[in-house]
C-alpha cells in the first residue's frame, strides 16, 4: 500500500457480481437486440427452416439477458433501501448536504480536477444520481421490452399460467400510451433508449478511468477488488 493511504471498502462481492453480470449482459442485449431490429448476418441455407433457429436463438438470448436484468434490477432496488453496506437512497434525497456534494463533484469534473472539495472515500451523490439514471433506463427497457413480449401472448394464456400475460398487461400497457399510442412507438422507444444506454456506458467508463488517473485513489479497483484508497488524514 502506498504510504499515507488507507484502503476503504466500496462494493460488496454481491454488488460486484451484479455489476459484471449487467456489463456482460448489456453487450449481449445490444448484439442480440440489433439482430432483432435488423438481422445483420445470414443463416446457412444447408438446413431446413425447422432445424435452425437463428432469429429464435437471438430472441432467446435477448430474453435471457432480460431476465438477468430483471433479477439484478429487483436486487439493486432492494439494496438501494435496505443494503447493510451503503444505502444509496440516502444520497438521492435532495437535502442541502447532497445538493452541495453533487455540485462539488460536478465542479471537480468541470474544472478538470482543479477543485476537489468533497470526501471521495464514500460513494458521492453525483455518482449515485448517475447510477440511478442507469437503473431507471434499465427499468424502462424492461417495461417496453416486456410490452413487446406480451404482444405475442395475445391468447391470454402462457405455459406458466394466465397470470403472467395478465401481469405484463397490467404493468406495461401504459408504455404504449406514453410513447405515442401504437405498438410501433414502443419499439422505437426501446430501440432509441438503447442508444441512451450506450451513451451512458461510454461516459461511465470514461469517468471511472478519469477519476482513477486524476484522483490517484485507484477508483477503478472498486469494481474488481471492492475497495479503493484514500489519503489517510490520521497518519499525517
Amino acid at each position: 500500500m502506498k504510504q499515507g493511504y488507507k484502503q476503504v471498502k466500496r462494493m460488496t462481492t454481491a454488488m460486484r457480481i451484479m455489476h459484471w453480470a449487467n456489463a456482460i449482459g448489456m453487450i449481449g442485449a445490444i448484439a442480440t437486440g440489433l439482430y432483432i431490429a435488423h438481422p445483420y448476418y445470414q443463416t446457412f441455407m444447408a438446413d431446413d427452416a425447422v432445424d435452425k433457429y437463428v432469429m429464435a436463438w437471438n430472441r432467446y438470448g435477448h430474453f435471457m439477458v432480460a431476465i438477468i436484468f430483471d433479477i439484478t434490477s429487483v436486487l439493486i432496488a432492494y439494496l438501494y433501501f435496505f443494503s447493510r453496506f451503503e444505502k444509496p437512497y440516502k444520497k438521492l434525497i435532495p437535502n442541502a448536504h447532497n445538493i452541495a456534494e453533487f455540485k462539488a463533484v460536478l465542479v471537480n469534473l468541470l474544472t478538470l480536477n482543479r477543485k476537489k472539495e468533497f470526501d471521495s472515500s464514500h460513494s458521492d451523490s453525483f455518482n449515485t444520481v448517475y447510477f440511478t439514471i442507469f437503473h431507471l433506463l434499465l427499468i424502462w427497457m424492461l417495461l417496453t421490452g416486456l410490452q413487446m413480449y406480451v404482444q405475442g401472448l395475445e391468447s391470454g394464456i402462457s405455459s406458466i399460467g394466465a397470470w403472467w400475460p395478465w401481469l405484463l398487461h397490467l404493468t406495461t400497457d401504459w408504455t404504449i400510451a406514453v410513447t405515442g399510442g401504437t405498438n410501433m412507438d414502443v419499439r422505437m422507444a426501446h430501440h432509441t433508449s438503447m442508444w441512451l444506454i450506450i451513451c451512458w456506458v461510454v461516459f461511465h467508463v470514461y469517468y471511472q478511468v478519469w477519476r482513477t488517473i486524476f484522483w490517484k485513489e485507484a477508483d477503478i479497483a472498486i469494481v474488481v477488488s471492492g475497495s479503493k484508497f484514500v489519503k489517510d488524514d490520521t497518519l499525517n
Binding site: P39, Q42, T43, M45, A49, V50, D51, K52, Y53, V54, M55, A56, N58
Partner: peptide, 9 residues
C-alpha cells in the same frame, strides 16, 4: 413464421 425464427429472410 418458421422462416422468421430460422433467420431466413
Amino acid at each position: 413464421r418458421a422462416h422468421f425464427d430460422a433467420g431466413e429472410y
